[in-house]
Computed example of a mutant assay.
Amino acid sequence: MSTSTLTGLSTGTWTIDPTHTEVGFVARHLMVTKVRGRFTDVTGTVTVADDLAAARADVTIKTASVATGTPDRDAHLVSADFFDAEAFPEMTFVSTSFDGSTLTGDLTIKGISKPVTLDVDFGGVATDPWGNEKAAFEATGEIDRTDWGLTWNANLEKGGVLVSEKIKIAIDLQLAKQA
């Protein structure tokens, strides 16, 4: 598959624009409420080749940058109960395949690597007022957090658990073309 299926996306290296990118997640709390969070420190590159199958994404996320809007919850997520940011300051994603609509790669959290598949929507390419070429993508998927050793939980009196094992991932990504 050539890059022509992603109209306007040129080959080369693209860098994540952190001010216009959000790596977010949604978990269930008490099995009924959605809790949303995001990571505020995300870096990486996407290398686009003539053949999309040869495209590569390398992303690094600082685990201590988790933000849910609740300082106590954020402190708990950074603790050894969840991300253990002191021992594991980064999580990474390295792609293994891309077909234009599905991105597969290895997600590493707490030293554990597992394959993840994300559905991808290409938003397009635009040039900003300063002449910089930008591209946008949205990616969504779902993981089971326990696969990465994120197992902390509390049983509820009437059944169920405090925090869902299934976590939805929602990424809004803007890339800047490197010269």
Rank of each mutant, 00 (worst) to 15 (best):
A67G: 07
R73T: 14
E90H: 03
A67C: 09
F82L: 10
V78Y: 00
F88G: 03
F83A: 09
F83D: 12
A57H: 01
G69C: 05
S79V: 07
A57Y: 02
V78K: 13
P71F: 03
G69K: 06
T92Q: 04
D81C: 04
F88M: 05
E90T: 13
A80H: 08
A57E: 06
R73C: 12
P89R: 00
R73M: 11
D74L: 06
G69E: 08
S79F: 00
R73H: 08
V78M: 11
V78E: 11
T60Y: 01
F83Y: 02
F82T: 13
D74T: 12
T92C: 07
T60A: 11
V78Q: 13
V59C: 04
E90L: 02
V94F: 02
P89C: 01
T70L: 14
H76W: 07
L77I: 14
H76D: 14
V94C: 07
P89Q: 03
K62N: 08
E86P: 12
V59I: 11
V66W: 00
L77N: 11
T70H: 13
E86Y: 01
V66G: 04
T68I: 11
D84A: 10
K62V: 09
F93V: 08
A80V: 10
S65F: 00
A64E: 11
V94L: 13
E90M: 02
F83E: 09
R73E: 14
H76Y: 05
F88D: 10
P71R: 07
F82Q: 07
T70W: 12
A80P: 15
D72I: 15
E86Q: 15
T92P: 10
F82V: 14
D74S: 05
P89G: 01
D58W: 01
V59D: 04
T92I: 12
E86V: 15
T96E: 10
K62E: 08
F82I: 14
A87M: 12
A80N: 14
D81F: 01
